[in-house]
């Protein structure tokens, strides 16, 4: 082997290493840029009024989006109540029960649903709920977000349950513990952190959804007093403000986007803390 050949190989190695590193940076770069921009534009537009006041009419200065912040929480709560039990139990079925053929079809359906454009979900719920109820409502908004969560939560739940070694199931069954108790007390308990993480990722994803809410929650410049009334949501208001021609609304939109990002971050960090490994420090 000649020396020049060796150098050429070294060059190729260094070149590829650099290329992969640059690509890795390119993956992270948008996140950093978005974060930087949101903090720069959004943080400066934040003030106490933003969290306490209702939106002001066009041309009036000030105002906030307290109704949209509350609305997003209400929508997410409904989505979680509706979507998490169905998604988690569906995932448990796929992982612990079900026959392989039926499972294949359920998985296939869930994967397709995960790829359905979010506006389509809005149209579906518009037909299912908004039309029969004669108008958009908070309920329809919550349901559409919940429906979007189901396939996401189901697939992640199934995957984390599959990561639980079969030896734990066998050990429990060999102790004469019934299958459903084994599933709940051993398998789900072992995978709980992963399930919670999956639920959070799904919640974070739907928290920022705008398109399906246009047809369902619709938005509201004031308060929604019942679940059957249209409700404000942060992504909707951000969208409306951002496409408006007013600088004041643009600033509000930045602040809203910043708060939404912080909300998603807070949910993640908070629940991760709550579900932290009981034995981590000692183990």
């Amino acid at each position: 082997m000649t020396v020049s050949n060796h150098n050429w190989r070294k060059f190729k190695n260094a070149f590829m290493q650099t290329l992969t590193f640059v690509c890795a940076i390119l993956v992270v770069l948008p996140l950093v840029l978005v974060f930087y921009h949101l903090v720069k534009e959004g943080f400066s537009a934040l003030n106490w009024n933003f969290f306490t006041k209702l939106p002001k009419a066009v041309g009036e200065h000030g105002g906030g989006m307290v109704n949209a912040i509350a609305g997003t929480f209400i929508l997410l709560l409904q989505a979680a109540i509706f979507g998490v039990p169905i998604g988690v139990l569906g995932g448990v079925y796929l992982s612990e029960y079900g026959g392989s053929k039926l499972n294949w079809w359920i998985r296939f359906a869930a994967d397709i649903l995960n790829g359905v454009p979010s506006i389509t979900w809005g149209v579906v719920v518009y037909g299912l709920l908004v039309v029969p109820m004669h108008g958009p409502s908070a309920l329809a908004g919550g349901i559409v977000l919940g429906m979007m969560m189901i396939p996401l939560v189901m697939r992640t739940t199934e995957e984390v349950l599959q990561l639980v070694p079969g030896g734990y199931r066998e050990a429990a069954m060999a102790l004469g513990i019934a299958k459903w108790k084994t599933t709940v007390q051993i398998v789900i308990r072992t995978a709980l952190k992963g399930i919670v993480t999956g639920v959070l990722l799904a919640l974070s994803r739907v928290a920022g959804e705008t398109a399906p809410l246009i047809f369902t929650a619709f938005g509201n410049l004031g308060w929604a007093h019942k679940l059957t009334e249209p409700i404000a949501a942060m992504p909707l208001l951000i969208f409306n403000y951002a496409i408006s021609p007013y600088d004041d609304w643009h600033r509000q939109a930045w602040a809203g986007a910043f708060v939404l990002l912080m909300l998603v971050l807070a949910i993640n960090v908070g629940v991760r803390f709550l579900t932290r490994d009981r034995f981590k420090q000692k183990a």
């Binding site: 070694p165 030896g167 734990y168 050990a171 429990a172 060999a174 102790l175 004469g176 308990r189 709980l192």
Partner: peptide
């Protein structure tokens, strides 16, 4: 299986439980 117990090749104590909880798990869950 309550009358005929089993121990496996790979030790498999339940990772979410303490030593004491592992010992009593079969009793508690029954």
């Amino acid at each position: 299986r309550r009358r005929v117990g089993m121990v496996f090749q790979k030790s498999n104590p339940f990772p979410t439980m303490s030593i004491a909880e592992n010992v009593t798990v079969g009793l508690r869950l029954n």
